[in-house]
Design a binder for these strands. Structure first.
Length: 791
RNA sequence: GGGCAAGUGGCGGAAUUGGUAUACGCGCUAGUCUUAGGAACUAGUUCUUCACGGAUUGAGGGUUCGAGUCCCUCCUUGCCCACCA
């Protein structure tokens, strides 16, 4: 026997078939189809200069296996890929190397696309999108303008056009007396995209403002630069308007519970009361401090009021004092507000008022009633400032509320999202600042507002974007901030539905057809960023009649991280990065895909093993040899065990792919192969087996399929059907327990009566029950015999 | 400090959801074959014991005829949020 035929030539097959699939448009998605639709989406990547490591494709291969099975099960599958390419890294590279970000972005996209193609992912590449393409970001800008032109009506619980708000406001006679600027200022407090002056996370190192989720341990996520508080003019997204819907919508989603919990906590809804305390001695007449509390039942124990430094009654402070109060990470700090005191609404006692660092200005009312007897923080503060601690006499909250006229109120942790970066490589915000201070949005027909070229990509350091240094840009009055990274990724799933449309972000027919993403695959790290923002935008687009479902992603699956062989996160600095190109070249794309799926449960993290991948390569070779055997053999029937195992495997693999249990699906393939090698398989059953592995082993299956005489692609062949009648068990062996310990086993067909089985079992384990009496017998059909004995 | 996961051989892990724990794969051991090598094939491989047997799913307790799976206490690891009133 020569050995040559006995190894599968992956290099030849991989490249040949990939060319063929591309030439044949095998994976092209039909815009119109009578088949049921299935939208399977990966979180699109940000193409970095480093290219892919073996951890990245795990999610892509999983979604690909799923999409392939669905295609073979007769669905019209939308499975696209694109690139999220605005953002800091390309810009930082431009600063250090002087290369235009557009150029870097193009190079990186090309590298990524080449790598993704080599993994044989069944994307419809004709739908590829690139967020830095003006034809794409035109629609990101268009959505921004819609948000700018909308307000949230809490009564109708949806977004409405701003002109409808104006007609409501006009009913008030006062409205006409306001100047144009005053009217604009009022409207700005309603717009869903609005400009505000707010304390933000300013990062001098990056020269930009950051969102909360871009800060890790008080430092910027990218670069690790320090972050400080600064009050600046910003664009915001009024995501807080959607807080309740973002919360209730979670219940309708088939998402991992962990992600739902994270979003729930992030939104942070709590129910309580607002209580007003009269203030005596303030300059403002009839001054009150309203606090938010979830524990109105402890009102009796209030001995002080604590205000945040931004509270209207907090007073003016020197820069130094402000800085001192800014630090709210360590000890409790506070200043007694001289000359004023509060009045307890129930007891009418005088209580002192403090400004403290531990009360957040952005939560509740920015003021807290201090109950040192109940609350640890209040106690720590009271102890430090020698404030008396009063023993709480609990009383029903509703009764107190009625008596002191406290209102029920809800509070949320979620904050409006900063929607501006003082950087260059992002979508321009399509607005003009007029000389009178008002703002004019661009018309839809004026979009896209394209990003101009600049000489220097360096941030100005004054908190302005490099765009501020372009005279023509500033002269036109264009906004110099750009959009943050999450803008374009908040709606891209809609663009794939109709990626080349120049008159709408996608045609309403396409959106009606594809509706929403059926299965969305990506990392869990986007729980409070992308996944929340995209839900918010989708809900807004639903309100204005663009999308047809309230939620964008029906089912979500998170992939676990692949660590280096040393169990550490893959990184250049550890030198533990495994490149997929090398794996594919050594073992072939099929062994690589199998191993990525076989390595362990899809959603858990695990180390890459450079030796274990040989196991899936052996599987590939064994299937190849089996196919040679099948081609050589005559017309044979499958052995009973093989046929039975085949049908068990059809059920198991179909179920496992459906539920993303890819590791056990591959394991079932291996068990089936082991069974086939010990028996005989018919040509027809072998075809079923090859189809069953085809979503994993794409080239191998295709080549074998051709050799079996098929003219069309296996990847469009119908998925095998499971026939329960084919599963025959001649006999099964079950255990016999005596007092809970396994003492023997018995072979049964399953047709015996309980008495029969028990009688035989007692005979088998008679040594273990000698001299004792049988107290109880249990027979769980087909599972176990349990005998209880005693003296 | 709060919340959420998870702990099973030398390694990655499986277990029909309360029914014979360690499937599948890697590695390892022995053998077969071969024109060097990486290969392939056959047998074995949780631990302990020459063996009969015994023990075993992070530790301890409980429920049950029966627990990796359910309940309680504790330990360890990972992730998320951290003065949210």
């Amino acid at each position: 026997m020569s050995t040559e035929n006995h190894f599968y030539n992956h290099k030849k097959q991989d490249s040949a078939w990939q060319k063929k699939w591309q030439a044949d448009d095998t994976y092209k998605t039909a815009d119109k189809s009578t088949k049921k639709k299935m939208y399977v989406l990966d979180m699109f990547p940000y193409p970095s200069g480093a290219g892919l490591h073996v951890g990245h494709p795990r999610g892509y291969i999983a979604s690909d296996v799923y999409a392939r099975m669905k295609r073979m099960q007769g669905y019209n599958v939308l499975h696209p890929m694109g690139f999220d390419s605005f953002g800091l890294p390309a810009e930082q590279y431009a600063i250090t190397h002087g290369v235009h970000p557009a150029k870097t972005t193009k190079t990186n996209i090309d590298t990524y696309e080449k790598q993704l193609r080599s993994i044989g992912l069944s994307f419809d590449w004709s739908r590829k999108i690139n967020t830095t393409d003006p034809e794409y970001y035109k629609w990101t800008q268009w959505i921004f303008l819609k948000l700018y032109d909308s307000w949230y009506d809490p009564k109708k619980n949806k977004a409405r056009p701003i002109k409808e708000l104006i007609s409501i406001l006009s009913k008030d006679k006062k409205w006409k007396t306001y100047s144009k600027t005053e009217k604009e200022e009022i409207l700005m407090t309603y717009r869903l995209a609005y400009q505000g002056y707010s304390e933000v996370n300013w990062c001098p190192g990056l020269g930009t403002v950051l969102a909360n989720d871009e800060i890790v341990d008080g430092k910027s996520e990218r670069g690790g630069f320090p972050v400080e508080k600064k009050t600046m003019r910003q664009w915001f997204m009024r995501i807080t308007a959607y807080a309740d819907r973002l919360l209730s919508g979670l219940e309708t989603l088939n998402w991992p519970e962990q992600i739902k919990t994270i979003q729930k906590n992030w939104i942070g809804k709590s129910e309580g009361y607002e209580v007003s305390f009269k203030i005596v001695g303030a300059i403002i007449p009839d001054a009150t401090v309203t606090v938010y509390t979830t524990r109105l039942d402890t009102l009796n124990g209030v001995t002080f009021l604590a205000l945040s430094k931004n509270h209207i009654l907090a007073g003016a402070y020197t820069e130094q004092t402000k800085l001192w109060l800014d630090d709210n990470t360590g000890d409790k700090k506070g200043i007694l507000v001289d000359g004023i005191h509060g009045i307890h609404p129930d007891t009418k006692e005088k209580i002192p008022v403090y400004v403290t660092n531990y009360v957040l200005s952005t939560y509740g009312t920015g003021a807290v009633m201090g109950v040192p007897d109940m609350d640890e923080r209040d106690y720590a503060f009271a102890e430090k400032f020698k404030i008396p601690v009063k023993k709480v006499l609990f009383e029903n909250a509703d009764i107190i509320a009625k008596r002191i006229k406290a209102k029920k109120a809800s509070s949320y942790k979620i904050r409006d999202a900063v929607f501006a970066r003082q950087r260059y490589w992002g979508e321009p915000i399509p607005l003009k600042h007029n000389t009178d201070g008002t703002i004019s949005p661009l018309k839809a027909s004026e979009l896209p507002l394209t990003l101009p070229n600049v000489k220097s990509y360096e941030p100005t350091g004054t908190g302005e974007s490099p765009l501020a240094s372009i005279k023509s840009w500033v002269k036109e009055g264009f906004e110099t901030n750009t959009m943050p990274g999450w803008a374009s990724s908040s709606w891209y799933y809609l663009r794939y539905m109709d990626p080349k449309n120049s008159s709408a972000l996608a045609s309403s027919a396409a959106i009606k057809n594809w509706k929403q993403v059926d299965v969305y695959v990506g990392g869990a790290e986007h729980a409070t960023g992308h996944l929340l923002y995209a839900r918010f935008w989708n809900k807004f687009l639903y309100d204005i009649g663009i999308t047809v479902t309230d939620e964008p992603f029906k089912t979500l699956r998170n992939q676990g991280m692949i660590l280096g062989p040393d169990n550490r996160k893959m990184s250049k600095s550890w030198g533990n990065v495994i490149n997929p190109d090398e794996c594919i070249s050594t073992y072939g794309v099929d062994a690589f895909r199998l191993y990525e799926m076989f390595i362990g449960p899809f959603d858990s993290s695990m180390p890459w093993s450079t030796e274990s991948i040989i196991g899936t390569r052996r599987f590939v070779d064994r299937v190849w040899r089996l196919h040679e055997k099948v081609l050589a053999q005559g017309n044979v029937k499958s052995s009973v065990q093989v046929e039975s195992m085949l049908h068990k495997t059809i059920k198991k693999v179909s179920d496992d792919i459906e539920t993303f249990n890819f590791n056990t699906a591959v394991s079932s393939h291996m068990i089936l192969l082991n069974t086939i090698e010990e028996g005989v398989i018919s040509r027809k059953d072998f075809e079923s087996f090859i189809i069953l592995v085809a979503p994993f082993t794409i080239s191998l299956s295709e080549e074998i399929w051709k050799n079996l005489g098929n003219k069309t692609s296996i990847h469009l062949a119908p998925w095998p059907k499971y026939n329960p009648k084919k599963i025959v068990e001649e006999s099964i062996t079950i255990g016999i327990q005596v007092n809970g310990k396994l003492r023997g086993e018995i072979s049964i067909t399953g047709n015996e009566s309980e008495t029969e089985v028990i009688a035989k079992s007692l005979e088998i384990v008679k040594n273990h029950i000698e001299g004792m009496s049988v107290k109880k017998t249990i027979y769980v059909k087909g599972k176990i015999v349990s005998i209880v004995v005693g003296f």
